[in-house]
Structure formats: C-alpha cells, structure tokens
C-alpha cells in the first residue's frame, strides 16, 4: 500500500488554480523526488498532503488513510521557508518542537544531544536561534524534522544555503533514513542531487503532473537516439550516424532514425576500433526538466 496517494486533487486560490488534477503515489521506503519550477504547485500539493489545506476535489491517503492528529506524530515536515522560534535557545526550541510530536522531555533531550553533536551544533545549543548562521539554522531545522524518528519525511529544499560539507551531511542523512525504512519525499531544485538520491520522481508544472515514474525510465524515455563513445585513438566516421557532438573527451553520436546502438557497437568491433567507453546517451534530469518546462511554455 502506498504511503502517500494523491488521486486527482485540485486546489484553487481565488481565480488561480494552484493544483489541477494531480495524482501520484509514494511507496514505502523509497526516496521520492517532487520537482517543479517556482509556483508549479509543489508546496500546495505538500500542504494538501499534510492536511494544512483541504483540496477542492480529489482524495488523499497518507499512511493508509485520511490525515489524523495521531498520524502527525509519524510525519516529519521541513518547509521550504524555515520555521524556528528565533528568540529562544536552540535546545529549548528543539525540546518544544519535539514535545509537540509526542516525545517526553527526557527523550527529546537525549535524542537532541546526539543530533546536535552529529551536526556540530552542540556548542551552540544555548544560543538563541537568531544568533546562529543560516547554515546552522538549516541543520537545526533538519534536526527538528527527524527528532521524533518519523516514518514519513517530507523535506522541501533541504540543501539550500548549505556548503558542500553540510550538503554531503544531509545527503548521507537522507540515504540513512531510507535505509532505515523511512519514506522520504524530497522537494528540490537541485536536479543533480535529486538524480543522485531519488528512486522515482514526479514533475509538476502549472499545477499539472508533467512526468511521473522511475527516474531511469524517465531518462530512457527522454533519451535521444544517441550513444556516447570514447575511443583510445578517436572515433572514425560511421555508417548510420547523423551528427557527431564532442562531449568531455568523448563523442556523442546522434543516430539516424531506425539505426540501433547495437549496430554502431558491432561496426566499431568489426573495424577493430579500441573502445574505452560506450553507453546509451541518457539525458540528465536537468535537461529533461528544462525540456519539459520550456516545452510547456512554448519555447
């Protein structure tokens, strides 16, 4: 049974239709990417999932049914705009947010101590939140999100404002959560990170689902009829190749319609070309994102 299931949900604010007939589901234990340009309807979809907004139509199932107060303790949510109490010490802020997720004071203290140590914030726990740097606040927000060890984690732009070291730290944490069986919904603009981390994605634009499915499948769907070849002494001109494009010391061979990559490989072997690298040229998620979004906008 999916952990999250959105079925034909729509939500309007006045004349603006933020989400229009959106459906997708997130399976247990997967790292799911929720993508889309600014104003696409991602945050509205998340808020509908979390019962902050009621959809105008459609249905939502979360953790096996409609949202309940009890289920809130099993979910961790990190909004894009960070939300921490600025005027109180970090430790007290975490204690309060943890307690609202049903943890006892002692348990919050014990867990927070571990996470603060891990995220290099232990020395700052008595400082007011507003005295922490943006990156530190970001890490504190991550701690507040996972402190109660949720079954479902929804994180919106968790990498923004982080340096490479801290980005790696959050990446490791998300992978770790997935390995521990936690279902993670990752909302991010940083496509290379989504590509690196997610199993499946949904791409929303102008409130509509544009792409949905396993990441590898989507990349294959968008793959042009091309192969990426690197030969020790270069790559000779081949039959069936329409265009040659140099890519980082290799060449991308764009094949004529109907020509299969296997035919190119066979030809290279027949000609005894020393091949160091041969792969089907798949587009990056970045390229797919731009193609889909620009394609819809009429570019």
């Amino acid at each position: 049974m999916p952990v999250i299931e959105l079925s034909h949900i729509s939500k309007s604010f006045g004349a603006v239709k933020a989400v229009d007939d959106v459906s997708f589901s997130v399976e247990k234990g997967e790292l799911f990417g929720l993508l889309g340009p600014n104003g696409a309807g991602k945050t509205t979809s998340i808020r509908c999932m979390l019962d902050i907004f009621k959809p105008d139509s459609g249905s939502i199932s979360i953790l096996g049914g409609p949202m309940t107060e009890a289920k809130k303790d099993r979910i961790g949510y990190m909004p894009e705009e960070r939300g921490l109490y600025q005027d109180i010490p970090l430790e007290r802020c975490l204690a309060y947010l943890g307690s609202l997720k049903g943890l006892s004071e002692a348990e919050v203290k014990r867990r927070a101590a571990g996470y603060l140590e891990r995220f290099d914030l232990a020395a700052h726990k008595h400082k007011k939140v507003k005295e922490l740097s943006k990156g530190m606040q970001q890490k504190a927000q991550v701690i507040a999100t996972i402190l109660h060890q949720p079954e479902l984690l929804i994180v919106d732009e968790p990498f923004s404002g982080l340096d490479p070291v801290n980005t790696q730290m959050i990446k490791d944490l998300l992978r770790e959560q997935r390995e521990a069986g936690v279902t993670v919904v990752l909302c991010s603009h940083q496509m290379h990170l989504v590509e690196e981390l997610c199993d499946r994605i949904v791409l929303i634009d102008h409130g509509h689902v544009m792409l949905y499915g396993a990441l590898e499948e989507i990349r294959r769907q968008f793959a042009a009829n091309a192969v990426l070849v690197k030969g020790a002494d270069g790559v000779p001109a081949l039959e069936g190749v329409e265009r040659v494009e140099p890519v980082n010391g290799a060449v991308k061979l764009h094949l004529r319609p109907g020509v299969q990559p296997q035919e190119v490989l066979r030809e290279l072997v027949r000609r005894d070309v020393p091949v160091e690298h041969f792969e089907i040229a798949l587009p990056t998620l970045d390229e797919i994102f731009i193609r889909v979004v620009q394609g819809r906008s009429g570019f």
């Binding site: 979390l50 809130k72 909004p79 705009e81 109490y85 609202l100």
Partner: peptide, 13 residues
C-alpha cells in the same frame, strides 16, 4: 512571519 506556524500545524491541530 517566521513560518514556525507551518511546522506547528503539522504537529498539533
């Protein structure tokens, strides 16, 4: 203003 609200309402009604 500081968006704490959004975190809070996913914890309590």
């Amino acid at each position: 203003e500081n968006r704490t609200m959004e975190v809070i309402v996913t914890s309590v009604s």
